[in-house]
Simulated assay, not measured.
Amino acid sequence: MADLQDDLHTSTEAGELDDLPVPSRAEVFPPEPYAPVSDPDDEPLARAHAVLAAHPVADGCSGLSRALGRLPWYDLELGECSVDTDVPRLREGHVGALFWSLHLPDAVVGDRAVGAALEQLDLVDSVVRTHPEGLRLAYDAGQTTDARNCGRVAVVPGPAGAAALGDSLGVLRSLHALGLRALTLTGVSWAGEAGLTRFGEEVVREMNRLGVIADLSGACAETVRRTLAVSKAPVLCTRSAARALRPHPANLPDDLLIELGAAGGVCMVPLTAEQTGPTVRDVADHLDHVRTVAGPECVGLSGTYDTGTAHPLELGDPSCYPRLVAELLRRDWAEPDVALLTWGNIQRVLRGAAFTARAAQQRREPSRATIAGLDG
């Protein structure tokens, strides 16, 4: 921190430019979250910045690891125009935590899917460790808070597609040991139209024992219902809006929103034109609807930046979150509800996953069940 205390030179004689100290990245991009208000007369926007400074955004889905895998070189701390997300824009948008989605290529199963998940976890680890001034890996609620208090953006690895397990609970344990903290229950034989099979239920129980959060975005209705019945920990829908407003298959109907809220889960509304609509008002409509139907404890945010999807007007990158919060404040959202939306609800889910894991580990040994033994 010594470099932050260097004297600033307010004037320089001709010929002395070469002697000026080179500013560090920490001086150029201070670790404390900040975002200049572009219009000082916009009172809701000013309030939005103030609320977000105290209660930053926990973003449910970032595709940054996939996007960075295609680039030969990048610097997220300095700023990177090749992607939607970098540290300056995260700070401008008051983002405190990101779930980094682990992309698996389409139709990849078995050992290849496991290998792809391992490569993604390795990439996440490498990216975070090479950007220590801006990013920090976090695996639970305490670590996300610590990262935010240190002026870093917490990176939570996951969700990954369920194919990453290769139908093996041993692989699930290994992925958890390497940092995986969320798993999407779609695209596998044991979580489909008929719901969870016996092996699928055992996967959920082992996820509970480890502290891996179930992501139910895109899952069939019966899988959602059975997971809510089996899981002792709260679940997430990391990329789901309200189907009553927009009939996208990943959006949730009202009956499932009610069940999700009753189970303590969180529906993280995505900022995508396809799922929520083309404007910031459309996104706010979905947030209003989910809050009304399922309660303020059931709603969260999912930027889905760097996933290849189009975003609503005025929400083109993570720096735009204050615009969305300003729209909610104009709609008379109470500041405590905004705090739950941006930070509190996800912290509760992370704490719930950790509490459930500690309790389960005291009464349950690692499961040795196999898909052949239970579903064969």
Rank of each mutant, 00 (worst) to 15 (best):
V128R: 04
N345M: 10
L102R: 08
A263E: 01
V224M: 01
P270I: 01
A294V: 05
A50C: 02
L301W: 02
E201Y: 07
L68M: 08
L90C: 02
D59V: 07
L78V: 11
P318W: 01
A117G: 03
V155N: 08
W100N: 01
A326W: 08
D254V: 03
V124Q: 04
E80G: 03
L271M: 11
P159T: 09
E274K: 12
P253D: 06
L135S: 10
E193I: 07
H103D: 10
L71P: 09
L68A: 09
Y74H: 15
G218Y: 04
L252V: 07
D375S: 02
T342M: 06
G161R: 09
V266N: 00
G166W: 04
L216T: 06
L121V: 06
S240I: 07
G158V: 10
T342E: 03
R331I: 12
Y74A: 13
A339S: 14
A54S: 13
R243D: 12
G200F: 02
A160P: 03
V212A: 05
E365G: 08
W190Q: 05
M268D: 10
V299A: 10
V171P: 06
A250T: 14
D254T: 09
A26M: 05
G170F: 09
P234C: 01
P278R: 12
V230A: 01
A163I: 11
H103S: 11
G264E: 01
A357K: 11
P247G: 04
R331M: 13
G166N: 05
T223L: 00
G134V: 06
E119N: 07
R239K: 14
P40F: 01
V153N: 03
L123F: 07
E77H: 07
D19F: 11
G192H: 01
S174H: 13
T304I: 03
V266E: 00
A58Q: 09
T197P: 14
A241Q: 09
E77F: 08
L341V: 07
R136K: 14
E274S: 13
P366N: 08
R246S: 15
T145K: 13
A58V: 15
L45P: 04
H94Y: 15
V266L: 03
L183K: 04
D84R: 10
E193Y: 08
E27V: 13
R364K: 05
K232Y: 10
V153C: 09
T10V: 13
P234H: 00
W333L: 12
M268F: 03
G110Y: 10
S189P: 13
A262I: 08
M268W: 02
P234G: 04
Y74N: 13
V299E: 02
T186Y: 00
A35V: 03
L172Q: 02
E92D: 12
H94K: 11
G277W: 03
G373Q: 09
D7S: 15
V83W: 04
V156M: 04
A117Q: 04
V325P: 06
A177L: 11
R91V: 07
D84E: 15
P44R: 07
A53T: 10
A58T: 15
A326E: 06
E193V: 11
P336R: 10
G264Y: 00
H103Y: 12
V57P: 10
V266D: 00
D337S: 14
G79Y: 06
G316R: 09
L76E: 02
A369C: 09
T227P: 02
L8T: 14
A2T: 15
V203A: 08
D282F: 05
S101N: 13
